[in-house]
Nucleic acid binder design. Structure first.
Length: 573
DNA sequence: GGCAACG
DNA sequence: CTGCCGTTGCC
């Protein structure tokens, strides 16, 4: 068992203890230990052998025993016991916003609520509101939370689906009967959340491929097993479809199953204008049949430039492809650096040096550090003194760095009245400021909009962080008039970030497109809290591509010297 | 459950 | 007086 798996087990123990209503500090100890294991440097086995694991902060005698058991047997009796004691419905309820372990436990103990379904009932008929510490309002919030869950269905975040899809494809890849294979559907188009995985294979001999597919270790249940299409449910509950077609049909099937549906409708209409019909098998007229070897041949046959999958939403891409005005979409390699990353100074898991090394290894020429500001006490926000301390460190780092550069930033809370979280003098000491809303979040649309607009007008506010505050599959953003905000941002030369964390992707692609139209520059930031988090930047690039952005629309494609110059000049420069 | 302080 | 260890209270 590796580090990551062990950390996951300990974390689950902590969560189950919480749901059991155990001593919260005991539960927390498991979460702590999990984090400590994840962050461990050096080899776990070595540490274990040398009996040094116990001296790691957050890991005591008991945790060492648990880890030893996991390394030796691959399982943990304690976890099995907990799993037996806590109904699985309770774990599911954790996904309901505003309904934590304590309340779940209470509802279970007092009302026997052990599933989301039963909770819905109890919230509707007033039983939930009748419990001590609960009221009408909490019951309403619970119902809202459940409705949100139902709506988002069994969708998962893009990276989760992507990783799974790649595993399935790898497991099939070696099959001799496969001529070509591709990912289709919303995953290929790069949507932020994904419901199912669509795979397409070209082959003349589908049976053995289908057999291998339905027998993959990741398959939990076989829904359909045919010669052209098979459907399974994977271990994480996701549906996965595999279609096998003849090689000559492959480009048409690939285009058709990539979608979107709306894009396909528009493409068929265009084919009709040419006296042709387009479907998943062919592009054909009364007498002729237009052969296409690749997907782009289909576009060419209809006098269209090839349309990248990310743009296929029928939002103008066909017209643009027709008059050769498709954007030259941003690529990961265009990015020169990133802003908005956290370190151990606030709530990050890696030090300034580690983050810098990580950014450098990722091919970036600079890194902007933006730890939390003083009001964010929950995230160990920086007091003005600690800001100065960090800035000294950055100066020292830059002084002996060869080329790679750190920028002094901050993620400043936007306070309720729209002001930033430091005095003017401290604000001026930063190279840049990312202004974000964390709390309070329950204001009206008008108030929220004005609050953000006021931050945008501040001369030291370089960019707004995670504008809408949405958390995918978890909660919607707070109410905002985004159009007004973008106009204000354009007017005051304030950028908006694309927060690339897979939970956020905020701005979303629709607002990206709008920002571009209004002339608002964006910056793509991973909001990384660890070295690995830096890699999330790629999801921001995907979002930017879906929003039609080109390198010129994105601030962090500029060379480091130009970045430094513009930050120094400020917003009026 | 970890940890520091205490006796 | 020091080092070891169980207890306690806080997180």
């Amino acid at each position: 068992m590796n580090r990551k798996e062990i950390a996951k087990v300990l974390d689950e123990c902590g969560t189950l203890l919480e749901l059991k209503g155990e001593n919260p500090f005991r539960a927390n100890a498991y979460h702590n230990a999990s984090r400590a294991i994840q962050r461990l440097e050096g080899d776990l086995d070595d540490l274990l052998e040398q009996k040094k694991l116990g001296s790691v902060k957050g890991i005591g005698k008991t945790m060492v025993e648990k880890v030893e058991e996991l390394v030796e047997t691959g399982s943990l009796k304690f976890l099995e016991k907990l799993r037996g004691e806590v109904p699985s419905g309770l774990v599911e309820m954790l996904r309901i916003n505003g309904f934590g372990p304590k309340r779940i436990h209470q509802a279970y103990k007092e009302l026997g609520v052990d599933s989301v379904e039963k909770l819905k009932l109890a919230a509707s008929d007033g039983r939930l509101a009748g419990m001590k510490g609960f009221g009408k309002k909490t019951a309403e919030k619970v119902l809202e939370g459940i409705a949100f869950l139902d709506e988002s269905g069994r969708r998962v975040l893009y990276p989760v689906a992507r990783e799974l899809a790649e595993r399935v494809m790898e497991a099939l890849a070696g099959h001799p009967a496969i001529k070509r294979m591709t990912l289709c559907g919303s995953l290929r188009r790069g949507r932020a959340t994904i419901k199912d995985i669509d795979l397409l294979v070209a082959s003349d001999d589908s049976e053995p491929i289908m057999k291998q597919f339905v027998e993959l270790p990741d398959v939990r249940q076989i829904v359909g097993h045919g010669s052209t299409k098979s459907s399974v449910v994977l271990d994480n509950g996701m549906a996965c479809d595999l279609r096998v077609v003849a090689d000559k049909h492959f480009p048409f099937a690939m285009h058709y199953f990539t979608g979107s549906k709306e894009h396909n409708v528009a493409m068929r209409a265009r084919a009709q204008d040419y006296g042709l019909k387009l479907n998943e098998y062919e592009l054909a007229g009364e007498k002729k049949n237009i052969a296409c070897k690749e997907e782009e041949d289909i576009f060419a046959a209809l006098d269209l430039d090839p349309i990248p999958p990310e743009l296929r939403e029928d939002t103008g891409e066909i017209a643009a492809a027709a008059d050769k005005s498709l954007p030259k979409l941003l690529e990961s390699g265009d990015l020169t650096g990133i802003f908005h990353c956290h370190t151990t100074a606030s709530d990050g898991g890696a030090t300034l040096e580690e983050m810098a090394a990580g950014a450098k290894a990722a091919g970036f020429g600079y890194l902007g550090l933006a730890d939390h500001s003083q009001t964010a006490a929950y995230a160990n926000g920086l007091s003005p003194e600690r800001v100065r301390e960090q800035q000294k460190k950055i100066d020292a780092f830059n002084a002996k760095s060869d080329g790679f550069r750190l920028f002094k930033g901050i993620e400043s809370d936007i306070l309720a009245d729209g002001s930033l979280d430091y005095d003017e003098k401290t604000l001026e000491s930063f190279d840049y400021v990312v202004a974000s809303i964390h709390q309070p979040m329950n204001m009206s649309e008008t108030e929220m909009t004005e609050r953000i607009c006021r931050a945008i007008r501040h001369p030291r506010c370089t960019m707004i962080g995670h504008l809408t505050g949405r958390l995918l599959l978890h909660r919607d953003g707070y109410p905002l008039d985004v159009e007004t905000i973008l106009r204000e941002a354009a007017k005051h030369n304030t950028m908006i970030e694309i927060n690339a964390h897979p939970w956020r992707l905020d701005l979303d692609w629709v607002n990206c497109k709008r920002a571009k139209a209004l002339g608002v520059k964006v910056a793509i930031n991973p909001d990384a809290h660890s070295v690995e988090g830096i890699d999330d930047t790629k999801y921001g690039v995907l979002t930017a591509r879906r929003g039609w952005l080109e390198a010129g629309d994105v601030f962090n494609t500029l060379p480091v010297d130009e970045i430094a110059k513009r930050l120094r000049a400020g917003k009026d420069g």
